Each structure stands twice: as C-alpha cells, then as structure tokens.
Amino acid sequence: MEIERRFIASPQVLNLDLGPGHDIVQGYLWAGPQGNARVRVDGDRGLLTCKGPKFGFCRNETEIPIPHAAALDLLAALPAETLIHKTRYAVAVGGLGWAVDVFGGRHQGLIIGEIELTDPAQMFLRPDWAVREVTWDPRYGNSSLALSGWQPVAA
C-alpha cells in the first residue's frame, strides 16, 4: 500500500544542502482512473510499477525490478514528449524522509515534495518549502503530467 502526500515545493528548497540527487526517466504504458503501469529508469535500475486506483491518498502499488536494458527499450517505444525527466533528492524533515523531485524538460520549473507514510492518520511536520498540497489534484500526478504537460497554476 502506498500512502503518499504531495506538495508543490518552493524553489527555496534548492538552497538546502540536498546532497547528491539521482536522475529518473519514466513513462506510462497505460494510465486511467483505475490506475497505471509505469516503467522507470533510476540510475542503473529498471523498474516496472503498477498502481491501482486512489482511495484518498492511498493506493495499492506493486514494483518489480526489470533489466535496465528492458526498461530502456520500453521507454524508447513511448512517445518522447510523454516521458518524465526529474532529479530526485532525499530530505529528512522531522525524522521522516521526503523525496524532492526537480523536474526537467517540458516540466522545467516544477518541484514536488512528497512524503510516504505508514498510516493514513500518521502525523508529520510540513516544511516551510512545501507551500501547497496537491495530493488530491490530479493535474500533479506523474501520469497526468506525462500525458498533458504542466503549466503553473495560481494558488
């Protein structure tokens, strides 16, 4: 079960000592209201991920390692304009780990901070740089970004 909260992050997060990031390229084999299937290259790892429909901010998720070459082949078969390019950084806040994704390509300028929780009721410290929650806004899901691009939305 994936229990995730997502936030638009202020560019001020880039002033933190983020340490080394890692580049991710991902694309969607299919996506819709019932879930999605994603292929990802994360460094030298290939991953195939299937996600079910969302229930609030929870959903079933299965992630399977696949050969790096197979992941590259699957990505190459997808339209280039639908691929997501981002650099992911790990940030500790209040004893919990956040992922900060700095998007590139046609999503340049978008920064998303996300935290994965162990329970839907789990409390967490929201950092100042997490300026607006977009957990329930489908425009900020990666599958939506892949298909429709991104334009900044006024707060």
Rank of each mutant, 00 (worst) to 15 (best):
M123S: 06
G21P: 07
R59C: 11
R5A: 09
S143G: 12
R5N: 02
S144M: 09
G95N: 05
R106A: 12
Q122A: 15
F124K: 03
A90L: 13
V41L: 12
A155L: 08
G95M: 14
W98P: 03
A76I: 05
F57N: 09
C58T: 07
W129P: 10
I3E: 11
K51S: 02
C58M: 09
F57P: 07
V93L: 05
C50V: 08
A99D: 13
L75E: 06
A70F: 03
E61C: 01
D23G: 07
K54T: 01
F124M: 08
G97C: 06
V102I: 09
R139P: 08
E63C: 04
G105W: 10
N60R: 10
G94M: 02
D17V: 06
Y140F: 15
G95T: 11
A154P: 10
L72F: 00
I115Q: 00
G94I: 14
L145F: 12
V134Q: 05
R106E: 09
H68W: 11
N36V: 00
N60H: 14
P67F: 06
R139L: 11
A9T: 13
I66P: 13
Y28S: 01
P67V: 13
L48C: 02
T49R: 01
I8F: 09
V93N: 02
F7I: 03
N36C: 10
R139V: 08
V153K: 13
P65V: 04
A121Y: 08
R126T: 15
A31S: 10
T82W: 04
H68S: 14
G35S: 07
F57C: 08
A77E: 09
N142Q: 15
S144Q: 13
F103S: 08
W150Q: 00
D17N: 12
E2A: 09
W30T: 04
L110S: 08
D23S: 14
V100M: 13
D42F: 00
L48T: 04
G104A: 11
F103D: 12
A31C: 06
L117G: 14
I112C: 00
R6A: 00
F124E: 03
P33F: 00
G21L: 05
G43P: 10
G43K: 08
P20F: 07
V131R: 14
I3A: 09
L29F: 01
N15Y: 04
I24T: 07
L74N: 09
P152H: 07
A90P: 02
C50A: 01
L96G: 11
T135F: 00
D44C: 03
P67Y: 09
Q26R: 04
W150D: 03
T49A: 01
R139F: 11
D137W: 01
H107A: 11
T135D: 02
V153H: 10
A71E: 13
P33I: 02
Q12E: 15
T87Y: 07
A69Y: 05
A37C: 15
I111V: 08
P127R: 14
V41R: 15
L75P: 08
F124P: 13
Y28F: 14
L18N: 02
P65G: 04
E133W: 02
R45H: 14
H22M: 04
V13H: 10
V100A: 15
I112K: 01
G21V: 04
H22K: 06
N15M: 03
I112M: 05
L18R: 01
Y140C: 06
V41W: 11
L110N: 14
V39G: 12
W98C: 13
R40Y: 01
D128G: 07
H22S: 06
G19T: 08
G46R: 06
